[in-house]
């Protein structure tokens, strides 16, 4: 961007010295010789101290040189002389942001939702930052930098709320934060601390069990889920989790009983239906298995659970000697899987 200098050169009253400096500065800048460009534009600001374009171009060159300290007053002077330079405003806002003046940068960044979002975030206005960053994501979906700042905004906002939480709930929050950060041992210790202080608090054994499952520790998971089931007999999620662990541990009869109970507590929970079907299959009850998988598919058609249900149904129908139905579900499984695989590949690109 060479602000208005080209237009300037068309004016008759421009002195030969000014014209010479402007042409040399523009040429040097185009060729990447920023030091010469800065020197030429600096001459213009000295020869024409009320010419906004001179300061705007000199500030822009400083900006390109990442010399934000010099660019800020220069760009600011340009805007004092001419407030109608949108590119210069954004440049000044960015330079201010880069030098740590996020709050001061905010008024200059209205043209860039992305930069404004970051400035708002750095300025401690997380809720507004989230709005702006989400707006920016509309035009740049899955942009990793935008997603990073959005995540940071949510995280800082949550941190502000969490800072007000005290006592055992604070420990619970630290456990959940540790889970998100992948610090499993720290999370497990924090949950154990919560349980020690508030053994009646629901969901803690469930969380500990799920944590154990993430490392494949079914023995610990089973113990924790069993405790949660005793503490919260009405929790369908706890019953499902416990039943699923029993199913993996070879305790088929107990698994079937618990999964049936989970299904009674919440009959429309796809996770339960999938594992209930598998438990029925393990018990040799093909019609019951078929019923559970079909019910799942009546609830969900496109998810990973639905994909698995099609595969399971394909196996069930093959065993029931219904090859056409088996092939139909195998085909649906393949189609869903193919669609998801293509989507995964696109996402990874």
């Amino acid at each position: 961007m060479t602000v208005a200098l080209a237009m300037l050169l068309t004016l008759a009253q421009v002195t030969p010295e000014l014209r010479q400096a402007a042409e040399s500065g523009m040429k040097a800048r185009q060729s990447g010789d920023l030091a010469t460009a800065a020197a030429e534009f600096r001459k213009i600001t000295q020869m024409a101290p009320n010419l906004a374009a001179g300061f705007a171009n000199l500030g822009a060159v400083y900006f390109e040189q990442k010399d934000y300290v010099q660019s800020v007053p220069t760009l600011r002077r340009a805007l004092e002389l001419n407030a109608n330079l949108p590119g210069t405003r954004t440049q000044l806002g960015t330079a201010l942001l880069a030098t740590g003046y996020a709050v001061e940068a905010i008024p200059y960044l209205e043209a860039s939702p992305e930069l404004l979002g970051i400035a708002l975030l750095e300025g401690g206005r997380e809720r507004e930052a989230i709005d702006r960053l989400e707006a920016a994501l509309q035009t740049k979906p899955k942009d990793p930098d935008l997603l990073f700042y959005l995540g940071q905004a949510h995280s800082r906002l949550a941190g502000k709320v969490f800072a007000q939480v005290t006592g055992v709930r604070a420990v619970q929050l630290s456990a959940e934060a540790a889970v998100v950060a992948g610090r499993r041992e720290q999370a497990a210790k924090a949950y154990a601390e919560v349980i020690a202080k508030r053994p009646d608090l629901l969901g803690m054994h469930l969380a500990l069990g799920e944590l154990a499952l993430e490392s494949g520790d079914f023995a610990t998971a089973g113990k924790e889920f069993e405790k949660e089931v005793k503490l919260a007999p009405g929790s369908a999620r706890a019953a499902w989790r416990y039943g699923a662990v029993l199913l993996n541990q070879g305790n088929n009869a107990a698994a079937l009983s618990e999964l049936r109970r989970a299904n009674q507590l919440q009959p429309d929970m796809p996770e339960t239906l999938l594992d209930l079907g598998k438990a029925e299959l393990a018990a040799g009850s093909l019609p019951n298995a078929q019923q559970a998988f079909e019910k799942l598919l009546a609830i969900e058609q496109e998810t990973l659970l639905a994909e698995n249900a099609h595969l399971q149904l394909s196996n069930v129908y093959r065993r029931l000697n219904r090859p056409a139905d088996a092939e139909r579900h195998a085909k649906l499984f393949r189609e869903l899987r193919q669609r998801r695989t293509v989507s995964d590949v696109k996402q990874s690109k």
Binding site: G216, A219, N248, G250, N252
Partner: peptide, 15 residues
């Protein structure tokens, strides 16, 4: 038929 669950092998081998 998938038998890792019914034999207990699934839980034993998961980690």
């Amino acid at each position: 038929g998938y038998a890792s669950g019914s034999t207990g092998l699934a839980a034993l081998t998961a980690p």
